[in-house]
């Protein structure tokens, strides 16, 4: 896949007219797809920048944050893939085992549980998350952030998207989401959803974490949305989940330590 994309980029000027045709075709096809069920698979590329993540923590001194950006700003990126399967009845989001940074090839960290399953028929969410050294199973009804709908449009992975904004005051994150107009399933990467279309791109704190769809395949799903194999963990609901996060963030704030060493950004 990477290779194909590269070839495309290299020859893109030459292939512009062909590319244009393809894209027109894709858009037409996307319109036609409304007639069929919007379901399929999306691979997201997650690009994090830990210097930017720490620089967005308001309680560390400006001098510390400036120094960190000066010494590490350009050299603190990490990359990984995640998978989303979606259909009008539900969605499942998981980290991928595929390596996004080829420098990481050949070394494997222990996989940390992270599964977000939404069921739109019962309006429930089922999550398995490794938080602060423990595995939790979170079951609750679907809740979404209060998105502000904005006016920008752009294209992500062949789909025209509009944007929305939300500020997570607990995690100190300013989140911009780009959702597809032609994929009317209210889901997205990580714990984000609740927009009229599938979220294809997320930008948190101006590049501290960018999650962008790099592959969208519309196809009928078979068993992809089935419940994953049983994982042991403590069962909690969403308000308990936020309670655990809040406790951690409050403690880190009191200690003036960066909070994201030990928790998923």
């Amino acid at each position: 896949m990477i290779n194909n994309r590269l070839t495309f980029e290299r020859d893109s000027r030459f292939q512009l007219s062909t590319g244009l045709m393809t894209m027109l075709f894709l858009v037409t096809m996307a319109v036609n797809l409304f007639a069929q069920k919007p379901e399929g698979y999306i691979r997201y590329l997650r690009t994090g920048n830990w210097a930017k993540q720490m620089a967005a923590v308001d309680y560390m001194s400006k001098q510390q944050r400036d120094r960190m950006m000066y010494m590490w700003g350009n050299r603190s990126e990490y990359k990984s893939f995640a998978n989303l399967w979606f259909s009008p009845s539900g969605s499942k989001y998981e980290d991928s085992e595929e390596k996004a940074d080829r420098d990481d090839e050949g070394y494997n960290w222990r996989k940390e549980e992270y599964t977000i399953m939404r069921n739109f028929e019962t309006q429930t969410v089922h999550e398995v998350e490794y938080i602060l050294g423990k595995t939790y199973i979170i079951d609750d009804s679907l809740h979404y952030p209060n998105w502000k709908i904005l006016n920008d449009m752009k294209e992500v992975a062949g789909h025209i998207c509009m944007n929305a904004f939300y500020e997570d005051t607990l995690k100190m994150q300013k989140i911009t989401a780009w959702y597809a107009l032609d994929l009317p399933v209210s889901t997205g990467p990580e714990r984000l959803g609740g927009l009229p279309g599938v979220i294809l791109e997320i930008d948190i704190n101006d590049g501290a974490m960018v999650i962008t769809a790099d592959k969208v395949e519309l196809k009928p799903l078979t068993t992809e949305l089935d419940l994953p194999k049983k994982v042991k963990g403590k069962k909690i609901n969403e308000s308990q989940y936020y309670g655990i996060l809040k406790k951690h963030f409050d403690e880190r704030r009191a200690a003036e330590e960066p909070p994201f060493w030990s928790i998923r950004y």
């Binding site: 980029e9 244009l20 894209m23 858009v27 006016n151 920008d152 752009k154 294209e155």
Partner: peptide
């Protein structure tokens, strides 16, 4: 539309009648 489509590689925004 052509602009939007051609922008496959380039982030582009439409704000009302403005293309950015």
């Amino acid at each position: 539309m052509e602009v939007v489509i051609k922008a496959a590689k380039a982030p582009l925004r439409i704000r009302g009648d403005t293309i950015e």
